[in-house]
Amino acid sequence: MTIVAGREEHLARQQQALARGTAVTHVVVGMGPQPGSTVTLQADGALPLARARNAGADIALAEGAELLVFLDVDCIPGPTLVERYADAAARCGPTLLCGPVTYLPPGSTDLVPDPHPARPDPPDGALVPEDRRELFWSLSFAVTGEAWHRSGGFCEEYRGYGAEDTDFALTARDRGLAMAWVGGAHAFHQHHPPTRHDPARVAEIVANARLFHRRWGTWPMTGWLQELAAAGAVEFDPTHDHLTTGAQT
């Protein structure tokens, strides 16, 4: 399942890779008009990332899917990604299954695993339990239909970029879902400038961070918020629970 707004070339490379692997039903949720989408959601202003993922899951489950694999449009699946997720799902109870992600350099589509060092990279076929819910990422993960229903899906109060995935992981934890890393479920993230560097996204990040703080009592994305504060895009003082858009002089 993929959500998308623009990035047609990224989507095309993802679809080509999926066609070469294990047979899947690929649900594509367009946030606004999108070539090749299964369904289109109206998207005025901030993209409805959480609502789009929920809508895609609903469609896949209605079509009989027993395993939901979520891939951001930027991600090219490795040749064994779906198979490894399916094997892992068969071996464990309700669990958020996460795979290693390699960030490709500009212009590259060479699928050579070199996963992000901040997250585990288990041996092929291994399952590594994870308690650190802040490491969950929505760009590549899988859940069974049963686990998805138990999780309640993504909180649709989040709009635009940031924090909805950590919120989902924490809610899933509170509803009894484990979390684990799946060796060999490699995805390859196609290069684009970091979304958090887009000035148009700063207000979304701030709004979502505030929402997360209200729901959980802690700040998400602290590294990003500190980076934006250093650039003068926000004021962020976690010791006094202060976050605003734009530095004050």
Rank of each mutant, 00 (worst) to 15 (best):
E66W: 04
G56P: 03
V69Q: 04
D74T: 03
P77V: 07
R84M: 14
A89Y: 04
T80N: 11
L97G: 00
Y85F: 14
L71F: 10
F70Y: 05
A65K: 00
A65Q: 01
A55G: 06
A89I: 12
A86P: 09
A65S: 03
V69K: 01
A86M: 14
G56D: 06
G93K: 04
L96V: 15
G56H: 07
P79T: 04
D87E: 09
L68D: 00
V69Y: 01
G93H: 12
A62N: 02
R91Y: 11
E63L: 14
N54I: 02
A86E: 08
A57Q: 09
G78M: 07
L61Q: 10
G78H: 14
C75V: 10
L97E: 01
D58Q: 11
V82L: 07
D87C: 13
A65M: 05
Y85S: 09
I76G: 08
A88S: 11
N54K: 05
G78W: 07
A90I: 11
R91T: 06
A62I: 03
I76L: 12
R84E: 11
A88C: 15
E63P: 03
G93R: 07
P77C: 15
A88Q: 04
F70C: 14
L68M: 02
V69N: 01
R91W: 05
L61C: 13
E66F: 00
D72S: 07
L68F: 00
L61D: 06
T80F: 08
G78L: 13
T95Y: 06
E63Q: 13
R84S: 10
L61K: 05
L81Q: 01
E83L: 13
N54Q: 06
L68S: 00
A57N: 13
G93V: 08
Y85P: 08
R84T: 14
F70E: 10
E83K: 11
A86V: 11
A55R: 11
A57K: 09
A89M: 14
R84C: 06
G64C: 08
A89V: 12
P77M: 15
N54S: 08
L81A: 08
L96W: 05
E83V: 07
A62R: 05
D72M: 03
L96C: 01
E83D: 09
E63F: 11
E63A: 12
T95R: 09
T95D: 00
V73P: 05
L97I: 02
A89P: 10
A62L: 02
E66A: 11
P79A: 10
L96T: 13
I59C: 03
A65T: 00
T80Q: 08
A90K: 13
T95G: 09
C75R: 10
D58T: 13
V69S: 09
